[in-house]
Each structure stands twice: as structure tokens, then as C-alpha cells.
């Protein structure tokens, strides 16, 4: 089901000042892929995400959406490209001053002309999808960590983005919720045709959803593998095999 290239990362170098996190990272995500970004703690997965969604300019290289270069585009084009993305942050990043319903509803209010009633319905549906039906009136501070995360995903899905970028969805979730989340990710791809980039350490989830992946290495500060993680487990780079077998191989 491989489609046309949807996201292309070309020779990306990510850095905070002088500290280079990763260099020469290149990969292509095709339409309808579920692309998993793997790597040890601190290897730069979140940094890669920040480079991709416009929060941190890369130190080198390019990020392309549908062939359009994100960082060399003008501010207006960049806003337009951003509109195609839905982002879930590692900690949920819910707006603490708004109840859950408004957290999910705000993007809809900003970017659609839907009447409030319709927005309310969409919000309840999105919250139900992540297992939080009826939580509209609660404030983020009244939720558990795992619930905040799921609510963050509901907000990321609010506008039915064609590209969903998700940072560690399953860490902090109980096994059942994590499993449901995998199913949800597959369903979003299959029924809504979304392209999904997931940062995750959860091996079960990696094997359940990934159609393609990249492994970024902490020591060498560069990517050392791409491809289907199932293949990588059998015959990949030794470091990746160790990662995919919890250090056993």
C-alpha cells in the first residue's frame, strides 16, 4: 500500500547550539505509512519532531512535505503546510487553562466555520476514540498522566490532519490502553488515510503498527538503520537488534 512520498527528510542535522544531536538523517515516509522513529533516550527523537513541525530550525538539511521544502518556504506557506500536521507532544501539552472539550475544540473553532453544536459533537467523538468519552468538562490538571496523553492525541486528531506526528504515545499508558492506541493508529491510517509518524520505545507497539522505521544511534549521533523493524530484528545492525530484543540479542 505504498503511496507517493509524503514526507522527505534530507541530510538533516539537528543541534542545540554547538551540541549536534544527530547528523545526516535522511528518510522518506510514503502516503499511508506508519513510520516509527526509534532510538535510545536522548538520541534526538523529540528534537527531530521539533525540526519537522516548525519549532526548531534544523542546523542543516531539509524537511519536505509533498515535495515542498518546509524551512525555505515563506511564513505563509509554512503556516499552510503546518495546517496539514497534527502533533501530539510527549507530555500531552494540553492547555491548562481550558477544559478538555475546549482543548480539542479550539483548533476546530480557529480553522473551521462549524457551528458550536457540531464542534461539540466532533469533540465528543474524538475523545471517545481515545477512551475519554464524557471528560469534556475536566481540566488537564484533573487527569492522570496517561489520560492527558490520550487527550493530547484527541487534540492532534481534531482537524483530521493528513499527517499525524506522535511523540511516545504509549509510554505511561496501561497495557490495555496502549493496545487500544495501536488499534486506533492503524484505524486512522486505514479509514482516514492518514500518514503517521510515531516516536516510540514500545516494542509490542512497534511490531504491531510499523510499516517502516528509522533507528537513530545515541553514540554515533547518526541513523544506523531504516526499514521494516521485523526485518531489522532478524538481520539488521547489531545495535538495532539489541534494541528490538530489549538488549538480549
Amino acid at each position: 500500500m505504498a503511496g507517493a512520498p509524503h514526507i522527505e527528510i534530507r541530510d538533516l542535522t539537528m543541534a542545540y547550539g554547538d551540541f549536534v544531536v544527530q547528523r545526516d538523517v535522511s528518510f522518506t515516509v510514503r502516503k499511508g505509512d506508519i513510520f516509527v522513529v526509534m532510538g535510545g533516550n536522548g538520541c534526538g527523537k523529540t528534537t527531530l519532531m521539533r525540526n519537522m513541525i516548525g519549532l526548531l530550525p534544523p542546523a542543516g538539511g531539509a524537511v519536505l512535505y509533498g515535495g515542498e521544502d518546509f524551512w525555505s518556504a515563506g511564513p505563509e506557506d509554512r503556516e499552510r503546510l503546518k495546517r496539514r500536521l497534527g502533533v501530539m507532544f510527549q507530555g500531552g501539552a494540553l492547555w491548562s487553562s481550558l477544559p478538555l472539550g475546549q482543548n480539542v475544540g479550539l483548533p476546530l473553532e480557529e480553522y473551521t466555520d462549524l457551528p458550536p453544536q457540531r464542534i461539540g459533537e466532533i469533540v465528543s467523538f474524538k475523545l471517545a476514540l481515545v477512551g475519554l468519552a464524557g471528560f469534556e468538562e475536566l481540566y488537564p490538571a484533573e487527569l492522570s498522566g496517561g489520560m492527558r496523553k490520550r487527550a493530547g492525541l484527541a487534540r492532534a486528531m481534531a482537524l483530521d490532519p493528513e499527517i499525524l506526528i506522535i511523540d511516545e504515545p504509549s509510554s505511561g499508558l496501561d497495557p490495555i490502553a496502549a493496545r487500544r492506541l495501536d488499534e486506533l493508529i492503524l484505524e486512522l491510517r486505514d479509514s482516514l488515510g492518514a500518514t503517521i509518524v510515531v516516536v516510540t520505545h514500545d516494542l509490542a507497539s512497534i511490531f504491531a503498527v510499523a510499516s517502516d522505521s528509522i533507528y537513530m544511534d545515541t553514540e554515533t549521533h547518526t541513523m544506523i538503520a531504516t526499514g521494516d523493524p521485523r526485518e531489522a530484528l532478524k538481520s539488521g545492525h547489531p545495535t538495532v537488534r539489541r534494541f528490538l530484543s530489549r538488549g538480549a540479542a
Partner: peptide, 13 residues
């Protein structure tokens, strides 16, 4: 700290 401001920026709000 909670990335809430980042969330505004990515949504272009």
C-alpha cells in the same frame, strides 16, 4: 515548560 506554547505555535494559533 509543558509545551503548551509549542502546541499553540504548531497549530498556528
Amino acid at each position: 515548560v509543558n509545551e503548551e506554547i509549542d502546541a499553540f505555535r504548531t497549530l498556528g494559533i
